[in-house]
């Protein structure tokens, strides 16, 4: 008990998104013991996140597919990688990734940001940033840049050679853990008792969203509307995966597990800031929230989504609720 409390305090002391600054309802996220949060590391991670020279084309930064103004999504159905390859899946928002129990669209085994980052940086099928085979070139670039030399030295003080790929990944992960979004109109209404946070329409939409009739909140549960989240004291949670209602050639989770039952199964995405993250679904095939609501109202392309029979005004209510999940300050942050 004492150890848990002490650990919690230690985490809070190191995480700039500390309890005092976490939005109401958010428990402290789990931080890997070998990658504690420090201001210097986070600052370096932010710089690297926006660094185009990491990619094969010298231009495509992480931020190229995760734009802050779009809640760290990119506004396209599917992004294009640094070598020009069109990627098969939509770029997901990074809001509150620190709390996700599984990362990526279709992986149960990718459970830390440090693991996940290897996919866009070094993945070859498909090529995203295309760093594989260019590792020494990237390291040389960083080591010849006085700003990075100083930033790495500060972030990883005490290491003889602080500019390493591992440290680069650690720094970006530390930055991503600071992408906290929990001050939407919904949050102000639910946690601050501020009725101006949600209109009557949005409140009706919330009731529908969480109702047995639509069951939206069954999968989009938790503080991140993506299923249970990992936090201090709640480390062992099961991420929610669902069979996509979209007809698609993408085999989804089956690619990782090999199990036929996982064909077309994807992780349930967060709905925070969802009004900013169009287009939707794992393949970006639905262009607007209206289209998503119509899609589910009609029962989707395939089981098990059943037609909902929503009236026009009920659809508007749900749309208003989804808009209330926008955290304007988060999207406006530099």
């Amino acid at each position: 008990m004492l150890r848990a409390v002490a650990l919690g305090c230690a985490l809070l002391a190191l995480v700039p998104v500390a309890a005092a600054t976490l939005p109401p309802g958010f428990a402290p996220p789990v931080i890997p013991a070998d990658n504690p949060q420090t201001p210097a590391k986070i600052a370096l991670g932010q710089q690297l996140f926006f660094e185009g020279r990491l990619a094969a084309d010298g231009k495509l930064a992480c931020a190229g597919c995760h734009l802050p103004a779009l809640a760290y999504s990119d506004g396209r159905s599917t992004p294009r990688g640094a070598t020009g390859q069109v990627l098969p899946r939509n770029a997901p928002s990074l809001a509150n990734v620190a709390w996700l129990p599984a990362l990526g669209w279709a992986s149960r085994t990718t459970v830390t940001l440090e693991q996940q980052m290897l996919v866009p940086l070094f993945g070859q099928h498909p090529v995203e940033m295309g760093m594989s085979g260019r590792e020494s070139q990237v390291l040389s670039m960083l080591r010849s840049d006085a700003g990075y030399v100083q930033a790495f030295a500060q972030a990883f003080a005490g290491q003889d050679q602080s500019i390493t790929l591992d440290n680069m990944v650690r720094a970006i992960a530390a930055f991503e853990r600071t992408l906290v979004s929990g001050r939407s109109g919904f949050d102000r209404y639910v946690f601050d008792d501020d009725r101006s946070g949600m209109s009557d329409t949005a409140r009706r939409g919330m009731a529908l969203f969480y109702s047995p009739r639509t069951q939206c909140g069954e999968c989009h549960s938790g503080i991140n509307f993506s299923g249970p989240v990992r936090s201090v004291g709640h480390e062992e949670v099961t991420p929610v995966f669902g069979r996509s209602a979209i007809a698609s050639a993408d085999s989804g989770l089956m690619q990782e597990s090999g199990a036929a039952t996982d064909r077309g199964v994807f992780r349930v995405p967060s709905l925070r800031n969802v009004a900013l993250t169009a287009p939707y679904m794992h393949d970006g095939s639905l262009p607007s929230l209206q289209a998503v609501i119509e899609f589910y109202d009609g029962g989707g392309h395939q089981r098990p989504v059943r037609p909902l029979g929503l009236s026009r005004s009920e659809k508007a209510d749900i749309a208003a609720f989804l808009h209330s999940l926008t955290d304007a300050a988060f999207a406006a942050a530099p």
Partner: peptide
Amino acid sequence: QQTASLSPDVVVVRRWD
């Protein structure tokens, strides 16, 4: 009641199969 699942103590696991 509506937002019970926001609490970390409530674990909702549902999979569409």
